[in-house]
Design a protein around this nucleic acid. Structure first.
Lengths: 360, 360
DNA sequence: TGTAAAGACCGTAACGGTACAGAACCATTT
DNA sequence: AAATGGTTCTGTACCGTTACGGTCTTTACA
């Protein structure tokens, strides 16, 4: 496991210059085939493993890899459908470009940004971290191109995302058209601190996760415009993004306000949990309770969830493409992908309004 | 995005040595708090982003990351349950060690090994690649510690795995005990070339994927010992690891040999496909046809599959631990994890033998 | 035969840091 | 007054490579 030989020692052994040995590996056309053969053979004999990648990176200023920063523990990324799909898209772009993908271990608990500083990469992709995350700050300080995804726009970096506010506005209008006025909302974590429970207006507006803030803002604006008093709408937050969270959050809202006719969840995972809780309570969806999600994951499709579909794989791929596309351009660039309202079977007119609504 | 300042220019600006600036970042106790404050403030003023990670890696000979080599396209890793679980385990170990995880883009189609050479990592984990894979060879040439998983033992590197042959022997004996003598086998790819169809004895024995070879060998040995003529056992291979492959492979075997009483699949994914195909043909499992898998993925559990459970997450974690554990030891080390025969509801006595078997 | 072009190889100067040994300074101790 | 020890800072020697701008030799062609 030692590194016995270097390019220099090889050159000395062969009686040629270091440049020539380097060329044997990187520019075969720059030396005679015969000499190249000798170089490679001697390399084999001395156990020289070829040019050291780190030294090469230092000299060429290219690492051949992009760093990925996630808000969660590394291992979490491999459990979350949504994150996985994004990663798959990003990986596709990396493959095309022949670039490696370095997953940076950014423990959200500790504020240890050393891992960001140590990452030898040509660029970063930052996926859905809170806007006050110290790891994000550390990335932004690094003098490499960066693409953020599902983040607010920043002056200095490219961005990929959807128009969360617009997308959920369509959903909200759909529910309003159906006649819903008494609603509850289940959302994902809004900040780095855990707050499993009802969310104050302040916290909603100060949310550090762009995506959640935008969705709540879209809901608030749309329902307010329709005459719903948003301050009276129960909004429950869950730190962990699991179906279990969706269940308990739905329970919390239904306990406090059994009169609501629709439960709007800001993710499909949460919505699937809400469905489970509704079933447990003997509420028929959608007849007794309308439930909606957001994301358009396959499981939601199977469950017939009314939701908003977003192209997650495309987001990953677009992020990679932005990073690898080094054409002239004026930064920052923004790619906003299209979303689609998916009308499933979990939303209908509120109970008791069937006739009134469609009547004369 | 330029890198305007370096440690040297900072030092010049401040009128101190480069060492002192370096210490301000890496050894705060080596200089007075006052000077350190000045250094960091000047750094901010000049836009110095802190020591360059690549240069640091060159000097310290530490990259702070491990490379991961997979047999598949990068993006595939994010789609396969089994690979994901392994990755999750590996990621856990990486987190604990504060190391990054670099996914090396090793396209199995092209023989382009450059990505392996360019990877600035402190070690490699190689997961289930064929033993003649050029990327594997390239990794072995690199002077860094390496752990292989689901591979045959190699002289120079550590290994993590299970005893595939022993594990499937237990399964085979279970089926023999139930009375099965006429069986068919569905296996995953055995080499780098695509061969979707029946597998010759030669190809079975020359398989380049250790795991598959060991499992086939275990089956051959066990059934032969019980008097079954292995040369007459239909073995069908599928290149793609999908349930669709399982379906078509099962069909291929059942078409050729409708008389078999058990279909042994070397993975749960394939077995789940086989179940689908059996259902399509109106065969009741296990009454008309016994189907078994291997791996113990959650979906198999849900389907009640009779299978062998292996600790995939643990494999990943163990691989990481081996890599990070730098204690004195004599290489190569081997970690062999335990497996467990899971008796589900998809295997029973062969049709027509019910009485004979349990009778007097 | 002269001259340009091409081919093969080389020397030097970075790339941006950290390790290590030691120097300068000051306050205590002997 | 000399020795001791701790703190703070410095100088030099690398880490292993590639970029760049040469030189020298050979070949091609008029």
């Amino acid at each position: 496991m030692r590194r016995p030989a270097t390019l220099a020692s090889l050159a000395a052994e062969l009686g040629v210059s270091r440049t020539t040995v380097s060329n044997a590996y990187n520019r075969p056309d720059q030396l005679s085939p015969e000499l190249r053969r000798r170089v490679l053979e001697t390399a084999r004999r001395l156990g020289y493993p070829g040019p050291d990648p780190v030294a090469r990176s230092l000299r060429t200023r290219k690492a051949g890899a992009v760093g990925l920063l996630l808000t969660e523990n590394l291992s979490y990324a491999f459990r979350d459908t949504h994150a996985l799909t994004f990663l798959e898209g990003l990986a596709l772009a990396c493959e095309d470009a022949g670039q490696g993908l370095l997953m940076v271990p950014a423990n959200p608990e500790r504020e240890d940004v050393a891992a960001v500083h140590r990452a030898g990469v040509d660029g970063f992709v930052v996926y859905s971290v809170p806007d006050d995350d110290p790891h994000l700050a550390a990335v932004l300080e690094r003098p490499v191109p960066t693409v953020v995804c599902d983040q607010p726009e920043l002056d200095t970096v490219d961005r990929v995302g959807i128009d969360d506010q617009l997308a959920i506005t369509h959903l909200a209008r759909h529910l309003l058209d159906l006649g819903h006025r008494r609603i509850g909302v289940v959302c994902m974590r809004l900040a780095r601190d855990r707050n499993d429970g009802f969310v104050s207006l302040d916290r909603q507006q100060a949310a550090h996760f762009h995506v959640q803030r935008a969705r709540l803002a879209g809901l608030a604006a749309t329902f307010s415009a329709a005459g719903v008093d948003w301050t009276q709408v129960p909004v429950v937050e869950r730190f962990d993004h699991t179906t279990a969270s969706g269940e308990s959050a739905a329970a919390q809202i239904l306990d406090r306000d059994p009169g609501i006719t629709a439960l709007i969840c800001t993710s499909d995972i949460l919505a699937l949990g809400a469905l489970t809780e509704a079933r447990r309570r003997g509420l028929r969806v959608p007849h007794d309770l309308t439930v909606t999600g957001f994301d358009g994951i396959p499981e939601a499709d199977r469950a017939g969830l009314t939701t908003v579909r977003q192209p997650v794989l495309e987001k990953g791929r677009a992020a990679g493409k932005l990073l690898f596309d080094t054409h002239e351009h004026s930064r920052p660039r923004t790619v906003t992908l299209a979303t689609e309202l998916v009308v499933g079977t979990t939303a209908t007119v509120p109970r008791g309004q069937d006739d009134r609504w469609f009547g004369p």
